[in-house]
Nucleic acid binder design. Structure first.
Length: 577
RNA sequence: GCGGCGGUAGUCUAGCCUGGUUUAGGACGCCGGCCUCCCAAGCCGGAGAUCCCGGGUUCGAAUCCCGGCCGCCGCACCA
């Protein structure tokens, strides 16, 4: 059996378990299912909530001085995605071989075969090039079809009139860019500012496979981190250290092994082009580690320029090794520069620049236009007001140009005025800052993928039984309560303990059916970290046993200490579940 | 989207080639009862199947044929 078969077998078992115990399964199964859609079951929902909350802990709560979370709609009007570039760039030009049926990205085909950069070309242009250069199928040499477009956006209509086109968002980011000014103001106008969002997105993938790994609709967890690239350093004391990464340059040379670099050095040397990008990669590293992924099973891969999204100046994918699929992308880290805000400023006309104060106010000499209104009034009469308006909006350099003549009268923007009435004077001005368009570093995660990864890493078999070693912090059910036997006196105490633990806001499972061994096994299979058992000794001394899922060791505690002990074992504070 | 393989209770599967012998069999799981003093013990009973969907061939289709859907693998695609 090859390694792949063993891994595949393991994946099959996980999928099987997920369906059987209620983590996830294909959606709309009774109608045959639809590729790219998955339901989360009862345990899946609980696990996902914990994964999402852990993400929130790392990316929002640990950074509440820097990051604020918002929520925006999943439907966006066309103009928003036009501004973001998704209408144009999310549409792939596809070309097909009429002989063998293979499909290619038309732009990639052209670039690879004749080295012509055709990014952003329309369908007609691409078609023209294909015909002029007589391109053939690179596989079989067959004739190629016309170029068609393939849009990965889900389209819908807003309101009763079909002319109002809307799209399901392919990322949460655009809602955050659109709302940037509002959030910036409500967060008291300070940079850096991260805006976080957890929400659903949809991408109409051409052929989704890989189960939960590639979905057409999923939950995205993103931070758009707005900052001044020349601003202060990230708080390296919170997150920093080593990153395993595979730079594009090494990939180009066919290298597959990541190198280990110190993030601060990598930023200084320009390997990571933006310091906040590097910072959030460190946060992501530790977050993923908490899901049960060893550092050696995770690294970053820099995307090649042609692999990057249209908005990105540099992208790293965080990869985690999983059964069956090998290295899977769990997060993308893109340096989006000021691309998005700039585009939204252009299209919406809204000024989203941010005032950047200088450390010290600067004294600068500026040139100003000074006019003699008395003279001008006599020359222009009633058009004086409109002339002054034009002048106000005019660049000093242009006025200078107009003055660079020896004529008596000069012409400025169609107004003929006496030369002597317009002067340029130099003045000393104090400037306390300037306006900049913030740059953005974006870490972005898919939640459902992470659920799968947690199960993949947690799955283990012990003597023919399954133990899900889910990290206790994210385990969907925290404790199980059993009577040793189904005797009324034991059942009564066990049920009391169950209610008591529920009142702590713990997720708890009560089970009295079958033998005690079977119940431990059932609990292990869904990853319950601790099992409390009421036995006959309980009746005489008010103690119960707590059994550890991973070590199978039991400790005996008195019922009155049980709450405290369990919370301690689970690393939880009272009320902070 | 192309090619190959597959789709039978919650899960895994037998049966399919060679149509009727099957009220579609089994294992595990689930539910109820009995039993059981700590790791899937045992006994009894029970529920649970659009045999993926649609059409065709046939006296008769889980079984043969065609189309579709879904899944896996390879190719292509995957900001």
């Amino acid at each position: 059996m090859s390694v792949k078969d063993i891994l595949g077998d393991r994946y099959d078992k996980i999928v099987d378990l997920a369906k059987r115990r209620g983590f996830f399964w294909p959606s709309y199964e009774i109608y045959g299912g639809v590729a790219g859609f998955y339901d989360l079951g009862p345990l899946g929902v609980m696990l996902k909530i914990n994964v999402v909350n852990l993400w929130r802990e790392y990316f929002v709560l640990k950074h509440q001085d820097l990051v604020a979370e918002i929520e925006t709609p999943i439907i966006a009007p066309e103009v928003v995605l036009r501004a973001s570039g998704h209408i144009n760039h999310f549409t792939d030009p596809i070309i097909e071989c009429l002989n063998c049926g293979r499909k290619y990205r038309a732009d990639h085909l052209i670039e690879e075969n004749i080295g012509l950069k055709v990014e952003g070309y329309g369908v007609e242009d691409l078609n023209k090039i294909v015909r002029e250069k007589e391109l053939k199928c690179p596989q079989c040499g067959g004739k190629l079809s016309d170029v068609r477009t393939f849009n990965l956006l889900f389209k819908t209509t807003i309101g009763p009139y079909s002319s109002d086109v809307g799209y399901l968002r392919p990322e949460a980011a655009q809602g955050m860019f659109s709302a940037f000014k509002r959030v910036f103001i409500s967060m008291r106008e300070r940079l850096p500012l991260g805006i976080a969002q957890i929400g659903r997105v949809a991408r109409n993938e051409i052929s989704p496979r890989q189960g939960m790994v590639r979905l057409r609709e999923f939950t995205i967890m993103e931070v758009e981190f707005f900052h001044d690239p020349e601003g202060d350093d990230p708080p390296w004391d919170r997150f920093s250290g080593k990153l395993r990464l595979l730079p594009a340059e090494l990939r180009q040379r066919g290298e597959e092994k990541p190198i280990e670099v110190d993030v601060v050095e990598a930023v200084r040397e320009g390997l990571i082009k933006n310091k906040w990008l590097g910072y959030w990669m460190c946060v992501a590293r530790d977050f993923i580690r908490e899901l049960g992924v060893e550092y050696s099973d995770m690294h970053y891969e820099e995307k090649m320029p042609y692999e990057r999204a249209h908005y990105s100046a540099q992208t790293f994918d965080q990869l985690v090794r999983v059964s069956r699929w090998g290295w899977v992308e769990v997060s993308g880290h893109a340096y989006r520069t000021d691309y998005d805000l700039r585009r939204h400023m252009e299209i919406s006309g809204e000024d989203m620049k941010v005032f950047k104060p200088f450390k010290e106010p600067r004294v600068v000499e500026v040139e100003k236009v000074v006019v003699d209104k008395a003279v001008l009034g006599r020359a222009l009469g009633s058009s004086l007001a409109s002339f002054l308006e034009v002048l106000r909006n005019m660049d000093v350099e242009e006025v200078k140009k107009a003055l660079a003549t020896s004529e008596e009268n000069i012409v400025i923007s169609g107004f003929r005025v006496p030369r002597a009435a317009v002067k340029i004077v130099k003045e000393v001005e104090k400037l306390s800052g300037t306006k900049i368009i913030p740059h953005v570093a974006e870490p972005s995660f898919g939640a459902e993928r992470l659920v799968l990864i947690v199960l993949d890493k947690a799955y283990s078999e012990e003597e023919n039984r399954v133990v899900l070693k889910i990290p206790k912090k994210i385990a969907p059910v925290k404790a199980a309560v059993f009577p040793l036997l189904e005797r009324e006196e034991l059942v009564r105490v066990a049920k009391e303990i169950y209610s008591d633990l529920v009142s702590l806001r713990l997720t708890v499972l009560y089970d009295e059916s079958g033998s005690i061994g079977r119940r431990y096994a059932r609990a292990d299979e869904i990853g319950i970290p601790y099992a409390v058992t009421v036995d006959f000794q309980t009746l005489s001394d008010d103690t119960v046993t707590i059994r550890d899922r991973d070590t199978k060791q039991q400790i005996r505690v008195s019922i009155k200490d049980l709450r405290k002990k369990l919370l301690e074992l689970l690393d939880l504070e009272l009320g902070a579940v």
